[in-house]
Design a protein around this nucleic acid. Structure first.
Length: 435
DNA sequence: TCTGGGGTCCTAGGACCC
DNA sequence: TCTGGGGTCCTAGGACCC
């Protein structure tokens, strides 16, 4: 029987901001979504004040009066810190699944004292990376998630580490967790389960499997099995190749003009294509969508279109061309648009593309153009070299980020300089360049 | 002015094939 | 009683995750 540790960074984005600006520590704080729209990360003190995923513009003055700090999201910073945490985790087990930007599953089967190992992991991450984490340890991933949940919540056990391996408290632990807090049970299923008298993780673990299978599906049945200690979900050690890549964002303001929308969607198409090339993929479908602002009392229109390409491609101008054709098909001039996006789908390895005798492009030339484009943009920043249709960099439809953290000099005022070990891991350069 | 962005998996039903 | 049956592929929609 395997043993898994789930290591999860506490309020990750907030912790990153507090790390580069220690003055924020000890105060309630939130990190805002793109466009400074709403809080997407909330630190412990802010949660205790009752702050949730709330709209920024509706709460700003209240937060000010409560002494809450806020920051626009700074994704390059979080990616950098995530890399440091994950590299550190890999020194504790060769089997690590990078589950998300701020959490990872480790296979730590065979360790002598699981709880002590968990504490060592926690201490090391905090010492080397400056990010507080919680650790949950158990025999299945779902139980490790649950243990982690308890480690974050527990008032009795403040160590931030809980092991449920062969634990006499297993049943008590399962009874303390409401069913909708179980990993894999969302709002909908939580409601349905509660209607059927299944209120806690323990109830779900005890539920009749055939009934679950019939009333729900195999996913939830697997979750129930895992809660009961039956190992169903293995570690995914290799990141699966993407099945789709999307780029979408709310606009800086409501847009009505086709001309402006063309610029926005060109930019999103280029971003999707770039990400696709980074993963060495090519797409066979392009989806384009627009949305009006659902929070406004005005005519709503949320069209989308799907375009099949005659051959797989990873070439920005080609993908942009299709995306703009799609845009013209779905665009109506009597609406005010709030959001849009481009998704590439039907992804195949770029090296396995079929050639097409009617292909208007010289593929060798295309490859060289891609290389030049990505090369320039990787050095000088995204969007440095771009299509004319993408418009200017300072176009006012671009999203807001008015509360970005800044670092004036590498390490200055932060804890980076005290972490010689992280220099060894060799990941500090991109942060400063991208900031 | 102002409410996130980016994904995955499963299932049911229809089209189509022999 | 019984109007073929088995199989695949595709898609839309619904659920979930961070």
């Amino acid at each position: 029987m395997p043993v898994f540790a789930l290591v999860d960074c506490n309020s990750f984005y907030c912790s990153c901001e507090e790390l580069i600006n220690p003055k924020l520590k000890g105060r309630p704080g939130v990190v805002l979504s793109n466009n400074d729209g709403m809080a997407v990360a909330i630190n412990r003190l802010a949660k205790e004040l009752g702050i949730g995923l709330d709209a920024f513009h509706l709460n700003r003055s209240k937060w000010d009066s409560m002494g809450v700090w806020y920051r626009s999201s700074n994704y390059p910073l979080y990616a950098e810190m995530s890399g440091r945490v994950m590299s550190t985790l890999k020194t504790f087990s060769p089997l690590v699944e990078l589950y998300s930007v701020d959490e990872a599953f480790l296979d730590i089967t065979g360790v002598q004292d699981y709880e002590a190992y968990g504490r060592l992991i926690k201490q090391t991450i905090e010492q080397w990376c400056g990010i507080p984490v919680s650790v949950g340890i158990a025999r299945t991933k779902t139980l490790a998630k649950l243990a982690n949940h308890l480690a974050k919540k527990s008032k009795k056990n403040r160590s931030g580490v809980i092991s449920l391996v062969d634990s006499p408290y297993m049943e008590a632990a399962l009874k303390r967790v409401p069913v909708q807090s179980v990993w894999g049970v969302g709002y909908r299923w939580g409601e349905r389960l509660r209607h059927n008298g299944i209120l806690t993780a323990h109830d779900l673990a005890m539920a009749n499997r055939n009934w679950l299978l019939k009333k729900f599906n195999v996913v939830l049945t697997r979750t129930a099995l895992e809660l009961g200690g039956t190992f169903c979900l293995p570690l995914n050690l290799h990141p699966p190749t993407s099945k789709s890549i999307m780029h979408s964002m709310s606009f800086g303001r409501l847009l009505t003009e086709l001309k402006e929308l063309r610029q926005v969607l060109s930019t999103y198409a280029a971003a999707s294509a770039e990400k696709m090339r980074r993963e060495e993929l090519a797409c066979t479908w392009v989806y384009v969508f627009l949305e009006t602002n659902r929070f406004r009392d005005e005519p709503q229109y949320n069209p989308w279109i799907k375009l099949q390409l005659p051959h797989a491609t990873d070439f920005t101008p080609e993908i942009t061309e299709y995306a703009l054709h799609g845009l013209e098909d779905i665009y109506k001039d009597d609406y005010r648009y709030n959001k849009g996006g481009v998704l590439v789908h039907g992804l195949i390895p770029a090296g396995e593309r079929q050639t097409n005798m009617f292909d208007p492009w010289d593929r060798e030339k295309v490859a060289r153009i891609n290389q030049a484009l990505d090369g320039v943009n990787s050095i000088f920043g995204p969007g440095t070299m771009r299509l004319g249709s993408q418009g200017f960099r300072n176009s006012n439809w671009r999203t807001r980020a008015n509360h970005l953290s800044s670092i004036t000099a590498p390490g200055k005022g932060s804890e980076f300089q005290h972490n010689p070990r992280m220099v060894e891991l060799g990941q500090s350069v991109p942060l400063y360049r991208s900031l």
